[in-house]
Design a protein around this nucleic acid. Structure first.
Lengths: 336, 336
DNA sequence: TTGAAAGCGTTACCAT
DNA sequence: ATGGTAACGCTTTCAA
C-alpha cells in the first residue's frame, strides 16, 4: 500500500493536518516544521491520493474533452484542437480525459455525475446540438468549441468561419474575378448541421450575393470520384469559372489532382484559395493561398475559458477569432 | 451537493451497505429489496462518486495513454493509435486520460502515484526509452506500443516493421528490380532511436544485403526542399535506380511531387512502394502499392493487454502484427 | 437476507 | 503555530 499523509506525519513528528497545510499553504507554518515535513515528504516519496482529495475538495484537476461526433471526418486538423487543449492543460497542471462523442450525452453525464471532472470542453458543435441541454442542466462549467444556433449562456469559442468565407470572396472579387465557385464539405456534414460547414458556406454565398455574383457551389465527397464529380458539377453550373474557393481538408488534394488531370493549371487557368488547408498539404511544393484555422489556439483559449469558469471568474460568453489570408500566389487576376 | 448513497438508502428504507451491494452484486439481495433500491437510484439519479470508490477499491477504471515524445512528427497516423485505444476503452466502460510525453516520466509518475489510473499505455517507444525504468519500478500494469531494445518483462505490442521493410525489398526483387532505394524518416527520428524508424530501415537494408543489392538509402526531411534533396542524394548514390521504397508519412507527397517535377512517371520510370501511407494520401487519385500500418488495431490490442494485466490474467509479453502488401500497381517489373 | 460500524486518505473546523 | 477530530462518500467486514 502506498504511503499516506499519516505516514508522513508520523515520520515528521507532526499531525496529519499540519502536513496537509504545508502542502496547501493555507495556513502559516514555522520554517522549522516546514523543513522537517518537506524532508519527510521527499524521503517517503509521498503524493496525495487524488481520489481522497477529490472527495474533500470539490474538484479533481481533471477536465473532459469531448471529441467530434463522427470519425467519418478525421484529419489532422481535429487533432490540433486536442493538442491545443492538452498543452494548455499541462501548463495549468491539470489532466485531460478524452471522451468519444458517439454517446456524447451519456458519457458527459457519467463523468460529471460521478465527479470525475471539474469541467467539460465540447468540440464540433452542431447548430442544434443534442448535448447543449445537458450542458445547461448539469452544474459544472463547460465550454463549447463552436457556436450553437441559439445564443445561450453557454460559453463558447470559435473561429469566424463566416468572415473567412466572405474574405475569400472579397479577395477574389478585388482581384477582378466575377466567376467564383465554392467547393465545400461533404453533404453529411451539412445534413448534421455542423456549425463550421454551414457558416462558412453562408459567408461565401452571402458575399457572392452582395457582389451580385452567381452563388456557384457544391458539396464534395472526399474521394477521387467525389472530387471529379464536384468539379464537373461546378463547371456545369458556371463554365466561365475563373476562381475556386476550397474548404475541405480531406478532399483538397483530390481536387487539385483532378484539376491537374484536366489540364487546368493554377493560377494561370484558375485561381484557388483554400480555408483550413492542413499542415501536410501546406508543406507541399505547390503552395496555395490559404486562410488557416487557428485550431491549436482555439483549443488553448477554450481551456483558459474553462479554468476561468472553474475559478468562478466571469468569462466572455462568446469569443470569435478572426481570419486572415496567407497569400501564396495561387490567386491572381483573371486573364480575360 | 450531489445525491449520495445514504440518500438512496434513506429513500429506499435500507442501509447504505445494502445499496452498495445492489450495485456491486457482491451478495444476494431479495427481489423486493432490489426493486425498491433500484427505483430509488433511478428517481434520485444516483451515481457513485468516483473518488470515493477509488479510495476503497484499488482502482479507478481509468487508464493513461502517453502520447509520442515530440510533436515534430505529427500526422493522422498517430491519432489512429489514440482512437484505437479510445474505442477499446469505451467498450470496456473505462475512461482514458491523455498525457503528453514532453515530461513523460514525471507525468506518468504523477498519475500513478496519486492513484489516478489503473494502468499506462506508452506510445512511440525508443530503443533505450527513458520511461522504461520507471514503468518497471512502479507497481502498476503497463503496455508499450513499440519494442524496446532489451527484452524486458514489460508487455509490448508492435507492428513487425522489420518484416515490412524486408517485404518491400522481396516484392521488388521478385519483380526483377536490382536497383532499389529506400527513403526513410527524418534524421532526428533515427537520432532519437525511435524503434519503428530504425527497425524498418534495418529490415530494408538487411534484405538488400541478403540479395546482394547495394544498400541505397537516405533520410528525408518532410519539406519540399528536403524531398528534393533526398531524391537528388539517392539518385547520386545509384543513378540506375528503378524502384523506391518510401516510409515517411509526412514527406510522402512531397517526394511524389518532386518526382513528377523531374518527369519521372510512376510506375513507368520508377516503381514505388510505400509503408504506412496515410488515409488522406491513400484516397488520392493516384494510388500506391502500400503496406498499411494497423494503428487502430495496435491501439486496441494494447488496451486489451492492459485490461488483461489489470485483471491479473497472464498476457503474452510480446505481440507482433505481421505486414501485408496492398498491391495497387505502382510497382511493375523494370523496363530494361 | 440485511444492518451497523469501521475504515480508506484527505481536508477543515475547533481547540489550544 | 500546531494538534485533535469530524466529515467527505463509499466498501467491507462483522453481527444478527
Amino acid at each position: 500500500m502506498a504511503v499516506s499523509i499519516v505516514d508522513v506525519a508520523r515520520h515528521a513528528g507532526v499531525a496529519p493536518s499540519t502536513v496537509s497545510h504545508v502542502l496547501s499553504g493555507k495556513r502559516p507554518i514555522s520554517a522549522e516544521t516546514r523543513r522537517r515535513v518537506e524532508a519527510s515528504i521527499a524521503t517517503l516519496g509521498f503524493r496525495p491520493h487524488a481520489g481522497a482529495q477529490s472527495i474533500r475538495r470539490q474538484s479533481t484537476n481533471v477536465v473532459a474533452l469531448v471529441l467530434p461526433m463522427r470519425t467519418d471526418s478525421p484529419g489532422w486538423q481535429q487533432m490540433r484542437f486536442v493538442l491545443g487543449v492538452l498543452d494548455a492543460a499541462r501548463e495549468h497542471e491539470m489532466n485531460l480525459m478524452l471522451l468519444t462523442a458517439e454517446d456524447g450525452v451519456a458519457a458527459i453525464r457519467d463523468v460529471v455525475d460521478r465527479a470525475m471532472v471539474d469541467g467539460v470542453i465540447v468540440m464540433e458543435i452542431e447548430l442544434d446540438d443534442s448535448r447543449l441541454p445537458l450542458l445547461q442542466e448539469i452544474n459544472r462549467p463547460s465550454v463549447l468549441i463552436g457556436t450553437p444556433r441559439e445564443p445561450t449562456d453557454l460559453v463558447h469559442v470559435d473561429f469566424n468561419f463566416a468572415a473567412a468565407g466572405a474574405l475569400c470572396v472579397e479577395h477574389l472579387h478585388d482581384l477582378g474575378h466575377r466567376h467564383i465557385g465554392y467547393l465545400g464539405h461533404s453533404q453529411p456534414l451539412y445534413d448534421r448541421g455542423v456549425g463550421y460547414a454551414l457558416r462558412t458556406r453562408s459567408g461565401v454565398l452571402d458575399a457572392m450575393a452582395e457582389h451580385g455574383l452567381p452563388q456557384t457551389w457544391t458539396a464534395v465527397e472526399p474521394t477521387p470520384a467525389g472530387a471529379a464529380r464536384a468539379i464537373e458539377d461546378i463547371l456545369a453550373q458556371d463554365p466561365a469559372l475563373t476562381a475556386l474557393i476550397i474548404y475541405n481538408e480531406l478532399a483538397f488534394l483530390q481536387v487539385l489532382d483532378r484539376l491537374a488531370q484536366l489540364g487546368r493549371s493554377i493560377p494561370r487557368d484558375l485561381s484557388v484559395i483554400t480555408i483550413g488547408q492542413d499542415d501536410q498539404a501546406a508543406s507541399r511544393a505547390q503552395q496555395t493561398s490559404n486562410i488557416p484555422i487557428p485550431a491549436t489556439q482555439l483549443g488553448r483559449v477554450a481551456f483558459e475559458r474553462l479554468t476561468g469558469l472553474i475559478a468562478k471568474s466571469d468569462q466572455p460568453v462568446s469569443t470569435l477569432l478572426e481570419p486572415h489570408l496567407d497569400r501564396q500566389g495561387s490567386a491572381n487576376p483573371p486573364l480575360d
